[in-house]
Design a protein around this nucleic acid. Sequence first.
DNA 1: CATATATGTCAACGTGGCTGACTTAAAATC
DNA 2: GATTTTAAGTCAGCCACGTTGACATATATG
Lengths: 165, 165
Amino acid sequence: MREGIELLFFAYRDFLEEADQVLARHKLGRAHHRALYFIGQHPAITVSGLLKLLRITKQSLSRVLADLVALEMIEQTPGLRDRRRRHLRLTAKGLEVERDLTAQQRALLARAYRQAGAEAVDGFRKVLLGLITEQDRRALMARRDQAEPTEDIEAPGARIGRAGR
Amino acid sequence: MREGIELLFFAYRDFLEEADQVLARHKLGRAHHRALYFIGQHPAITVSGLLKLLRITKQSLSRVLADLVALEMIEQTPGLRDRRRRHLRLTAKGLEVERDLTAQQRALLARAYRQAGAEAVDGFRKVLLGLITEQDRRALMARRDQAEPTEDIEAPGARIGRAGR
DNA sequence: CATATATGTCAACGTGGCTGACTTAAAATC
DNA sequence: GATTTTAAGTCAGCCACGTTGACATATATG
C-alpha cells in the first residue's frame, strides 16, 4: 500500500517536471498549463465549466485567464443564447504552446505504456479510475463519448476584451 | 494518451484531498505531511537524505522541520560516527498523526486495488514505475529490499534542540 | 420589476516553493 | 596542525498560486 502511495507521489512529480521546463521557457506557471490544457480539451468551455474542472476559486482562475488573454493564447466569445457566458478557446498561439507543453508528457507516457504493455495500461487505468471521485469520472467520460450536445452556443466572431486587433 | 494525463491529474488531486481534511484538523500543511511520511518510512533519515527524496531546498525543509520539532512530532539525534548529521524520527505523537494522515489514503487505495483486481494493480505499478526517474525508482526499491545497512549510525538518547523535557 | 446567475474586481492573506549570502560545527585532507 | 570540505542552519526577500470576503455589472428569468 505504501508503495502505491509513493509511486503516485514520484510519478506525479516526475511527470510535471517534464512540463515545467517548457513552462519556464514561456514564462508561465503550472496554473497556466492546466488552464491551457483544459481549454484545449474542451473548446468553447465557459468560465464556470472550467472552474468546476479545476476546483479553484474564480479569483484564482481569473488571474490566470487574464494573463492568457493578454498573451493572446486564449480568446473569449460571449454566448449566443446567454450573453453572460464567456466561451473560451485557444488561439493559434495558445494551441502551439499547449502542444509544446504536452508533447513531452505524451512522449513520456507513451514510453511508459509501451514498456509496460497493453494489459498493464488497462490495469493502470482501472486503478486510477477507482481512485477518482464520481464527479471527476464523469468529467473524463464526458469527453470520451463526446456526443453531449454542447448546449453552450456561442456567438461567432464576437471577441471580448482587448478587442479586435 | 490524453486520458492518461487526466487520470493522473484527477487521481492525484482526489488522493490528496483525503489527507487535506486531516491536515486541516491538525493545522498542518502538505509540506508537513510529506516530511512526516518520509521520516516515518525512513527512520533515522538525515536531513540531506530527506532533501534528496523531497527535492526541495534546505531552506524550505528547515521551516517544516522546525515546526514539527516544536510540535514534538519529530526528534533529531546527532550521528554517532558523524556528529554533524541529524537523524530524524517520529515521536509517538508524530507517529499517531502520520497514521491518521495516511489511514484515509491507504483505505482509498485499498478500495481501488480491490475493485480493480490483482492483475490491474500489477499494471498500475508497472506503468507508474515507467514514469518515474531512475533516481526515484532506486529510492522506492531501497526501502523494499530494506537490507541496506543504514550506515547512518546515530547516538542513542542524545536529542538536539528544545532539549530533554 | 425583482431576483437570480455568470463573471469580474479589489484587497488581504497563507503556504510553500525559490535565490543568495552567511554562520557554525565537525570531518577530512594535506 | 592548519586548511578545506561538508552537514546543517539562518536571515532576508521574492514569487506562484491558492484562499476568503465584499462588492460591481450585465444579463436572464419569473
